[in-house]
Design a protein around this nucleic acid. Structure first.
Length: 421
RNA sequence: GUGAGCGUAGCCAAGGGGUCCAAGGCGCCUGACUGUGGCUCAGGAGAUCGUGGGUUCGAAUCCCACCGCUCACCCCA
């Protein structure tokens, strides 16, 4: 279609017909967050570019080629938020939340921006719901966050999802592990795909989740991060699993699970649907004990996760999960004849003032057409006003499903509306 | 950034050089003795056939370029 303007590549309008999915997810996420003691935090759509460079990591794809960065008129470099965690940590520091009872539990809904080639489940602007628990490093917090994540996905009614967890160690033990990993892959360099040759020095952890058959073979025999944890990480990992067991969460350990952002430490986890699609992960998170320090705070532990709203919607639709419709008004006010237009406007206005929902039918259409409209919009009652009704101070209330109708006085109709609430 | 597929009305879609100033369906609007919907019937509006160039007497149909969309890789929610 040749159009002057269309939504930019990788962005999308969320149409009225799709809103029910979004409101459904938001409702569940908000309720759960509250139940777990999380409070909402909103941060700006853009931040100082340095925040993301320092937190997400200089060598990551996000920072290297995916950020929407612009200079403002004052010459400052700003970046449209490419992820949600760093801004939350920034806000934690900026507002002295270290002085609140720890951990500080917060959640957010926000758009995030990454300049990538769009495909199924991946967009340049997408929306995330996420939670963060800051200030406490105890593994029980990890377990709590994972439970929240799992509860969310289950409460949405998504079936056949799996919860994968892993520990990737911390600054103390990870470097040694990565050396082992490199060693392992270097020995069989010849079998590596081109991308993996690249990963070997850029991001060795990612070698583990390469999808190429030859690399996967190597991955099977690769050293596991959980076998190379330092004492602290080992204890953390053991307790974390025990807590998950205690809560009966159906997790699986995935030794190849790593996350793409530099700031992750120890616990990492993901939830994915069973069907293997390209962009399948619907939720991902982990611990980031070094992040706050990286952006200028005192060493402060933290853990959280984010979900992709678009991916959740995609899966809700795919699985045909029944999602409640958005409520719409019960009444449409119809005027038979032009003379009744004023009375119709007046009735609709009075109904709305008393809190009821009333749609005005389109002026100038025949009664038939107006009823057709009422039918198409699915309202419960049509309120018909014509000369007859007006002269008697009445309105004809037609039940659209039973086709029964009766004339009642406008006053008593409005009174009943009031009583109804 | 790389690779593949696709672009005909709001949506689905036929047509693959002349009979196409483009079929059909959904949706939308109107009407069926001028106050009554959902079914049916009739009518109507809506398309620079993605854009530009080329081949040809003639192009929605063939060729080229560009743009856009989709999917996959990379990476991630």
């Amino acid at each position: 279609m040749a159009m002057q303007h269309r939504a930019p590549r990788g962005t999308a309008d969320i149409l009225p017909s799709d809103q029910k999915y979004w409101r459904y997810i938001e409702g569940k996420a908000r309720d759960l967050s509250r139940r777990f003691g999380y409070s909402r935090l909103d941060t700006p759509v853009f931040e100082d570019s340095g925040l993301f460079v320092r937190s997400v990591g200089e060598g990551t794809d996000i920072v290297e080629k995916e950020m929407y960065t612009f200079l403002d008129r004052g010459g400052d470099s700003n970046t449209l938020r490419p992820e949600g965690t760093a801004p939350v940590c920034r806000a934690y520091l900026e507002h002295g939340m270290q002085n609140l009872p720890q951990p500080v539990r917060m959640y957010y809904f926000c758009p995030v921006f990454r300049y990538e080639r769009p495909q199924a489940g991946r967009y340049r602007e997408h929306h995330q719901f996420g939670v963060e628990a800051l200030g406490v490093g105890d593994p029980s917090v990890d377990a709590e966050v994972v439970e929240l994540a799992w509860s969310l996905v289950s409460s949405l009614g998504l079936a056949d999802t799996s919860l994968m967890v892993n520990s990737i160690g911390d600054r103390e033990c990870r470097p040694a592990y990565i050396d082992k990993l490199k060693e392992h892959y270097t020995r069989s360099k010849g079998q590596l795909c081109r991308d993996c040759l690249d990963r070997l020095d850029r991001n060795p952890l990612r070698l583990l989740d390469c999808k190429q058959a030859s690399c996967q073979g190597l991955g099977m025999e690769a050293p596991r991060s959980v076998d190379h944890l330092c004492e602290g990480c080992q204890d953390h990992w053991d307790s974390f699993q025990r807590y998950l067991d205690t809560m009966g969460l159906p997790y699986r350990i995935d030794h190849h699970l790593v996350r793409g952002l530099d700031y992750y430490t120890r616990t990492v986890f993901e939830i994915q649907p069973k069907e293997e699609g390209g962009q399948s992960t619907i939720l991902g998170g982990g611990r980031y004990d070094g992040l706050i320090e990286q952006i200028g705070g005192k060493p402060t532990p933290g853990i959280g996760f984010a979900t992709g709203m678009e991916r959740l919607v995609l899966n809700l639709k795919r699985q045909e999960v029944p999602v409640p419709d958005e409520p719409s008004p019960d009444y449409m006010v119809i005027s038979a004849g032009d003379g009744a237009r004023d009375a119709a406007l007046d009735l609709a206005a009075r109904m709305r003032r008393s809190g009821a929902g009333a749609i005005l039918s389109t002026a100038g259409r025949a009664l038939r057409g107006q009823l057709r409209q009422a039918n198409a919009l699915g309202v419960r009652y049509a309120l018909i006003l014509g000369d007859d009704e007006i002269s008697r101070g009445e309105v004809t209330v037609r039940d659209m499903s039973s086709s029964e109708q009766e004339a009642v006085s406008v006053d008593s109709f409005l009174e009943k509306l009031d009583e109804g609430r």
